[in-house]
Amino acid sequence: MKKRIVLILIIACFSCKNETKSNGKLNIVTTTSMITDLVKNIGGDYVNLQGLMGSGVDPHLYKASEGDVTKLVEANVIFYNGLHLEGKLVDVFEKMGSATKTPIALGEELDKNALIGSDYFASNYDPHVWFDISYFKQFASKVAQVLSENDPANAENYKSNAETYLNELEALQSKIKATIETLPKEKRILVTAHDAFNYFGKAYDFEVVGLQGISTATEAGVQDVQNLSAFIIEKDIKAIFVESSVPKRTIEALQAAVKSKGHDVEIGGTLYSDALGSAGTAEGTYIGMFEYNVNTIVGALK
């Protein structure tokens, strides 16, 4: 019933086209914290930016509240990941797309032939594309393009900010590669709460195994835990990882299953997967999050 009320409100609000800017700036709304950070870097002080999802929020399970409706209605531009990452928001965005404005699904801009397939999502693709930095760079270019089209007066500023940020992402790629190369290939097996790191694995030659599969909407069963514990023992994996946006009890259960068979595996740390860290920290930025994750993974698996 609540979902229906939210959709009705959105349809009603969007029937009256809203092109209002606050203080002469574009009103931008974003979904995930990764996209919020991206738009912050490119939009800078030239936009009014509001992100729907904060630190530790799971986008797979996030539902639009009635309080979100005002933000969405007043937005000049809305950026989201797409590829059904924000599964509970799909109906909302579809209704908006049929009204007066179409939210920008950044993931839909990528070459589908290069994406990893997935039966868990209606898009048939793994949506965790930000873990390939080259894809995030494409996101950055798209954001700069959309902002420039909607605010031509500041197009040069958006272009300049995008160039600066793309250079920072280029430097991040080089730094990450150097760190990972210190880890022998036979030790590059990443076991986490759910399969958020497949693009990371593809980019940096890791075998990635998630206990819950690609979507946190699925639950890990006893057999999943037993099968993965046997895999950990067989491969002599030294560490497994919790995720900040997924309850740690599943990984703790996996650790207990391994120990019950006379073997030991450490919890190597908490990784940021579907959300960034707390605002004001290094991990609260995309670049800081990526560096932290890689340092944590390499340090524990060494």
Rank of each mutant, 00 (worst) to 15 (best):
A140K: 03
G56H: 05
E66Y: 13
V77L: 10
L147S: 00
D236E: 15
A257T: 02
V209E: 05
S245R: 03
S278Y: 01
Y158T: 08
A153T: 06
S141V: 15
A12I: 13
G97W: 02
L7S: 12
E252N: 00
A217D: 13
F200R: 03
L89C: 09
T250A: 10
K248W: 00
S118V: 03
D91R: 11
A193L: 09
D195M: 03
G67H: 12
D151L: 12
F139H: 01
V47R: 09
F121G: 08
V208G: 03
T218N: 15
K17G: 04
K142I: 12
I176E: 04
A153I: 07
G56Q: 07
F139D: 07
T281L: 05
A105C: 07
I267D: 04
K2E: 14
S278Q: 10
E207I: 09
A220I: 13
Q255P: 01
K302G: 08
G51W: 03
L169R: 08
A12S: 14
S33Y: 09
D151Y: 11
G87N: 07
G107T: 09
T102N: 12
I214G: 00
L271M: 10
K248S: 08
A162M: 12
D126S: 00
Y286I: 00
K17D: 08
M53F: 07
V265F: 07
